[in-house]
Design a protein around this nucleic acid. Sequence first.
RNA 1: GCCCGCUUGGCUCAGUGGUAGAGCACUCGCUUCACACGCGAGGGGUCAAUGGUUCGAAUCCAUUAGCGGGCACCA
Length: 893
Amino acid sequence: MIEIPKTYDPTEAEQNHYARWEERGYFAPEINKDPSAPVFSIVIPPPNVTGSLHMGHALQHTMMDVLTRYKRMSGFRALWLPGMDHAGISTQLMVTRQLKKEGLSRHDLGREKFQERVWQWKQEYGGQILKQIRREGASVDWSRERFTMDESLSRAVREAFVRLYDDGLIYRGNRIVNWCPNDQTVLSDLEVLREPQKGKLYYLRYPLKGRSDSITVATTRPETMLGDTAVAVNPNDERYRELVGETLVLPLMNREIPIVADDFVESEFGTGAVKVTPAHDPNDYEMGVRHNLEQIAVIDQFARMTEAAGPEFAGLDRYKARELVVEKFAELGLLEKVVDYEFSISKCERCKTVIEPLTSTQWFCRMDSLRDLALAKLRGEGKPRFVPQVPYEKVYADWLENLRDWTISRQLWWGHQIPAWYTSDGEIIVARSLEEAREKAGTDKLTQDEDVLDTWFSSALWPFSTLGWPDETEDLKTFYPTSVLVTARDIIFLWVSRMMMSGLKFINQEPFADVYVTGTVLDKHGQRMSKTKGNGIDPLEVFAKYGVDATRLTLASVGSTDTRWSERQVESYRNFANKIWNAARFCLMNSEGAEAVASPFDGDLPLHDRWILSRLNKTAREVNEKLGQYDFHGAVQTLYHFFWDDFCDWYIELSKATVTAEADSPARGVARARLISVLEQSLRLLHPFMPYLTEELWLKLPVEHAPLLHRAYAEAEPTIMLASFPQGDHALMDDRAEAAMQAVIDLVSRVRNIRSEMNIKPGERIQVMIAANAELKSVFTASTDQIARLTRAANVSINGNVEMPKASARAVLSGGAEVAIPLEGLIDFAQERERLMKEKEKLQKEGSKLDAQLGNQDFVERAPAEKVEGLRARLVDIGQRTSALDQMLEALS
RNA sequence: GCCCGCUUGGCUCAGUGGUAGAGCACUCGCUUCACACGCGAGGGGUCAAUGGUUCGAAUCCAUUAGCGGGCACCA
């Protein structure tokens, strides 16, 4: 007899298996020896090297692992490729902070030394998350781990850059950009947050040249007036029509600036006149281009005023300058008014510093033709397929349609340095390497561009750079395009769309077939978890408290909708894990003699065996269907209820008598083997969700493991990871057995109900008398022992239509069967009558509803015949049961 | 401003054109030889509001309210 502890302790299982799985190469697709095996591949959304695991990761990783394990067990050559992102800004910031503690800045070290320090930092502190991914049980192929700064991926970045440049899609230009004065780098539009801000709207008067009157403009940023080069009004605005073309004298600067007409200006807002600062506002920049206005930069890269702002302002911080400008306007009597005003402000996504729009020379990527590739793929072939389709497909398409050029250069030292060189006379040479550049330039005197590329530039290549591109490697041929991308919705633009565009551009094939967008785990108040709010739940703590498997079930159940975090939920799945453990415990304690049974399900089977096989195989079919649709929640529910309700509550109880019979009982061995077999198959179905618990138990089962492996892994050492995932055998699905078993379940439940309502002590043995038609009679007769056991009856008698004793509690079952429990001396006739009356009322209520529906001619004519038939049958059954109840009531009076 | 999602028992969430579901919580009873992280039996919802389509609507459509999210060049 095999004994295991009473309560499942996840820590042991969690320590026992991962290293072995990894060492034996189970995570690598090479374990699959079937040359014709279909391929399944996923690349992990590479977490930042600076990052540590949060609930969002755990959620995505759970789903990716469920899919990968499921496909692997189903015989697919499965690859889940792990890796990390170099995360330019965050990482540089991290190391800069470290240097600061030593009293150093990156400039003290110089570029090369600084980069060395970053690599050193990565070695020591980076990649915490990789350990945490192991803890999750993620079956990623560590032999293919990648980092975006690996030489091979850097090569891919250079290749991509050169090709885009050669195609005219990458260019260098001077334009207005988002500048972070804290991080000292330019940012793309997607790295900028818009936040509502309470501020002021200042109304400033600009005098007209040679006249005594003035125009008033409204602004939230008075300090930028120092760089104004025009005032704009709407061409249709009657108030200003005559003034267009006139000249204003810009106060403080005494600069003459024109009044121009531009459709951009909304007459209704403010005064209908807008100051134009082409060097410091994106809209003004556009207007400036339209009207050929001068750009005067009055704010520098540190957000301080420049020389061009005049001697009184030069060197002042932008906010100090604002105060001073307002003060001066007030002194001059040109400050008309100041009103409270709420507007939105742009901030750096990383450091939350207010962005300063500046004109600057940067590298840009034209997006129009790339965008067209992605849109054509979506419109023509429906790729990628978003799950859920609503709303993500539309969100994706809308964003693509309004796409603007992408600022790809960054003023950082950590990242892929732009593969562009300058000759002494300023010619730009773009090349894959210095050698190539020298060759192209015909000179050795080259200096490389100082800037690096946006981190997302390398991320955009991830699905193929990780597989060896630009080389045509075996991996690329085998695993590209990948099967599905699992991700959170906040990087659909930053990442998903860019991968799609670059995949189509460079490989001429989409990088993934499906995009599964997960929901978000919110805190218990429905708020997003965030570092700043400090309301995050650490997955590692949850793992420690409830076990990895229970946490995974909780996360898998989140699916694609946002869900508030509930520890109770994890607790209930912890309980489920314990339930599985104990079901296995029971099977193991009663396993002696089972090993010897080679084919436990050969020959005629009793009802409960046919029933559980049918339930098991339908469950398998359903789980396959649901996983095929990324319905993780549904798959978990199906498994949970099959295992707990069908297997534990009924099957184990139904087989107990035989399974725990005396050793010499002929049926014992085979009943035990059947029980273990159903458990074994259940564990396989559960494995993708609960890898640790299922492996721990599966290996303990006294069965021959090798034949259970999928044929693609026939030579592997036994592990449930490589066992064949049950597909659901149609031949074993048996609706008749399920219906018959349902009748037994109903019978047992009704008797238990009576016991409970009549306050019959649990230990008290009762008599159960059943009257039933021929069909049910034979079902009940075959299950007499089990009925007796489950209802705790001293004996069960089954007859045709026999008079039941008057002094008994009775019930009518569907199908016309009746059950009576004689309670001589115990029964209160009035109370029993009441109980039956209640029952009858219920039936009548339902019956009259059916009557009404069937009485409706329109319904009978238009509803499907099947439906109508079903209702009629139910009505007949209700009629039968009602009249049986009537007879019982009469007998009691 | 535009677009989208959500609103189902006390709580967290499934679900679906045809008799309202789960887990937790709650009530009652149980040391029944796997499990009290358990077993058995119960109570509890006019599926946000209004109108429409339909033989039939919680499920489809429209409007409204509340909550949440995304996008946007209104100084």
